[in-house]
Design a binder for these strands. Sequence first.
RNA 1: GCGGAUGUGGCGGAAUGGCAGACGCAUCAGACUCAAAAUCUGACGAGGGCGACUUCGUGCGGGUUCAAGUCCCGCCAUCCGCACCA
Length: 804
Amino acid sequence: MSKGYSPKEIEKKWQEIWEKEEAFKVSEDRTKPKYYALVEFPYPSGQGLHVGHPRPYTALDIIARKRRMQGYNVLYPMGWDAFGLPTENYAIKNKIHPRIVTEKNVAHFKEQLKALGYSFDWDKEINTTDPNYYRWTQWIFLQLYKKGLAYKSEMPINWCTSCKIGLANEEVVNGVCERCGGEVVRKVKSQWMLRITDYAEKLLDGLDNVDYIEKVKTSQRNWIGRSEGAEVDFKLKGKEDVLRVYTTRPDTLFGATYMVISPEHPFIETYKDEITNYDKVAEYREQAAKKSDFERTELSKEKTGVGLEGLSAINPVNGKEIPIWVSDYVLMTYGTGAIMAVPAHDERDWAFAKKFNLPIIEVVAGGNVNEAAFTDTATGKLVNSDFLNDLEVTEAKKKIITWLTEQKIGKKKVNYKLRDWVFSRQRYWGEPIPIVFCEKCGYVPLPESELPLLLPEVDSYMPTDTGESPLAAMTDWVSTTCPCCKGPAKRETDTMPQWAGSSWYFLRYLNSHNDKEFASKEAIDYWMPVDWYNGGMEHTTLHLLYSRFWHKFLYDQGLVSTPEPYQKRTSHGMILGENNEKMSKSRGNVVNPDEIIEEFGADTLRTYEMFIGAFDLSAAWSKEGVKGCRRFLDRVWKLKDMIVEEDGYSKELEIKLHQTIQKVSQDFEGMKFNTAIAAMMALVNEFYRIEKVTKKEFKTLLLLLNPVAPHMTEELWEELKFDGHIYQASWPEYDKEKTIENEIEIAVQINGKVKATVKVEKEAEAAQVKPIVFEIPVVAKAVEGKTIVKEIYVKGRIYNLVVK
RNA sequence: GCGGAUGUGGCGGAAUGGCAGACGCAUCAGACUCAAAAUCUGACGAGGGCGACUUCGUGCGGGUUCAAGUCCCGCCAUCCGCACCA
């Protein structure tokens, strides 16, 4: 007997060999076909790696290793998205500089990742908090600023009362702060914004040319929320001024019986003196402003509002005077902040009209507008609408838009739900925004030569109650000279959000040591786009959309070579605790990967996480399941004692070998890692059944298994004295012809029910099979005295007799 | 309310419209052992029958088909997003 499988020794051994030999360093040979595999870089938290992390990392490690064996020049990099609140909060609590905390956490993460044996090219490692990295984050920000895509604006922002920080819309979940769960209120602050809305159309169109899983595309489309409609101007009675609205149903214009403006609408101030109930209106506005987003959502069922007295509008199609109301169901941030209300054909307007007793006029026939709003646009014809009568909805839309355009009181208009990106944070641990404010020159960007603008050392990282960044207290740092007029100026004290660094990191990997550019043109041309990017669904409308935006901007500046950064995007499912609930400290169901590696080995952990279930679905952890995977690897290990001196594949398993190579190759690429492993298990079972394995068979198995269990397969490869190391070997080939058995067992059915099975040649014709089928006793008996109505034969599948 | 998923043995999960339950876990039995563990071999959806066999069975109700987990129509449940976007 030879020695047993001992992962603890061999895993460390091979990790050192790979490192020493620079086994996974990318080649500078640009004639080789490239493959860029990418996983989302982690935030190095104090808790260390979680068993959820290895799932996507292992999956793409498998792809990376397989592609290398297939002759590709593979880039599979790793880095650290290290700016962020938890580190800052930890630093505040423990009075340690966030940089020190980050260093410690990164070291721990790196050690853990190395223990898992990933084929990352560590030479490409990046860290978003490294000045040599964020120098370029700042640089890209300046380019955005120069093109007018970064601007400062007085904005009602989402303010977390607990973190004392402004949040992007995307960071507010159910009206509370995504990070701390604290209450979020609206607060007006001057904020840096990025004009992502300018790229709404491009972000939408680009989705047609990429290979993302469908649900990611759908979510992004919904998030961008494109809608087509029209803008219409309603004249204010007795004034020259108009109230402009946006509507997707211009066809229902004859049914507009009142108008509603948002509480923040500027007309309230403009016509302060004409509005006879201004006090009441102002009071309503104040109440609306005080409501947190959470309260607004809570009360969404019940409509509230105040009618404007002394001010009314004229419906342009019929000259009728209609009232104007104020209500918080109309949002200032979408469209024009004002709507024409058509209660007969809009549910919200209907509810509002019923509550405040406003007239409801049916203009599309087909429903009962006294009972409910009729919103169907596919059926029904226009009524009560003068020149639109009898038209279908789509026709009526076209006609009214033409009419509005001719009358110069409206036009076709496309709107998006997407809003500009709030890009300031009142925090210390982020990239400083490289802008100064000068009384004379206004906002002035720093010259690029002054980048990176380093984060200064501060005494306290605590955010202030006034909502200012801790940097604001650093008067020495804040006071500077204007790059433009050389007069006194003040630095911007807000920092960038965590999403900044991750918006372009995949470009830095290409050329991480470059100190002249964010990445060389040559490297970008060769490596981009990312061939396969895997990450969490939770980033679909955040990081994934933001980074596409930045990349599209860089593309428009001629700085990158492809319009889209990622060719393919997939998503992994979560790993749940044994109790089928999300793993969390409070639930006490967290599994630490270190312990699994200690007890079973990294190869077992990798195998298990790939075998646990369909990659894109969540799956519950099972300690017993881990044991099963270790058992499988033990069985592979022990095969070395069953090797026989025989050339090639053994006769009885030749087909099985070819089938397995085919299945494993296809399943890896299709993310069906679980069935690929199942196929290898089945092959191993076959070796045990016939109690032998040839050298070539074993070699093939090792090659197939290598991407999943790299350490063990290297060790066995060495022990059996195959050439070089397995990471240098080629992926096995299969012969399509040899994956199909000559003799196939087919099912014989009577009226669709299986009665027997019979072995026939794979290409046998019906005429050859028929006599064999009828000889089967069960069949003969079933057919006896009955009429055969129909016979169906599907080659290699079934022979079905329909009898009466 | 809108959008997206999911629903198959005791459990995790497999199945280009063609023998449902591959592979794994758990369980049971046998071999090995003084014994246990480990390992190897076998059984393992449910009901009925001594038995060759037989009936039922992929969330529920219909339908298409020689044949449905798979396709179509209508529901139910769970999970995840979004949520007054005019």
